[in-house]
Amino acid sequence: MNIRIIPRLDIKGPNLVKGIHFEGLRVLGKPERFARYYYEQGADELIYLDAVASLYGRNSLLEIVERTARDIFIPLTVGGGLRSVEDIRIVLRAGADKVSINTAAIGRPEFIQEAAKTFGSSTIVVSIEAIRRPDGTYEAYVDYGRQRTGVDAFAWAMRAAELGAGELLVTSINKEGTGKGFDLELTRRIAEAVPIPVIAAGGAGKISDVHDVIAQGRADAVCLASLLHYNALNHLRAEDDDYSQEGNIEFLRQRVRLSHIQDTSLPDIKAFLEARGVGCRWRQPAPANA
């Protein structure tokens, strides 16, 4: 089986943002340009997550999805604030291939079943955001890691799979954005318990972290943000874009290097994995006339 590497783009308004522990969001640039760059670099899929939809309602995400889906021919998953079958329909109609649901599913688990029945299981990714408690148990959170639920993350993962989720996107809130590596225990325990693919997210700071979460965490796919975004920034001339006044763009202006994130790219990561016996899809050069 070939491992998938999936860049994850957190979107706030018209911008790609990135934070630490889902807080302190920085503006990194225009999501479509990052998406195009990752597509050309050999991304296996893309994930767009609306960073604020659960709190403030719908925004410009649909327009971004439409523009992206028009010229990027790999699967695109979209999530953030999807609460009904009709919400999902609208996002799929804009060009998404799959949707990721979290808050609404925990509040009403039958939502997974309805969504899977209406659109097919393979369209429904259930996102589980977990926080490790001091006693070693894991609790599922919602609203971008802001709201606790009291639900055990492992029990919830099993339930979501039984209700018809096609894949699980498992994010460690403790590790998210820190660059300190994935939560291997969280990933492994879920990946070994469910029959469906698990996408690991949250914490990659260096290439070897990606290998660890596959080899030790048993992840079927790996979702990356910081590890790719800061490198991509150097290749995308942010100055060409007109940024709205919204958001913290100080980071963009200063071009600060992040000491806790290795400077790497999708081809580097795949080469590293291939060299260690982890199968990946390699980038195929686009034929000139396609």
Binding site: N2, S122, G166, I196, P197, D220
Partner: peptide, 18 residues
């Protein structure tokens, strides 16, 4: 089939590139 040659468990559905 949800096993490979080594008898290890494979995820079914297959989701990804082949």
């Amino acid at each position: 089939q949800s096993s490979d040659k080594g008898g290890r468990r494979l995820k079914v559905p297959q989701v990804g590139w082949n």
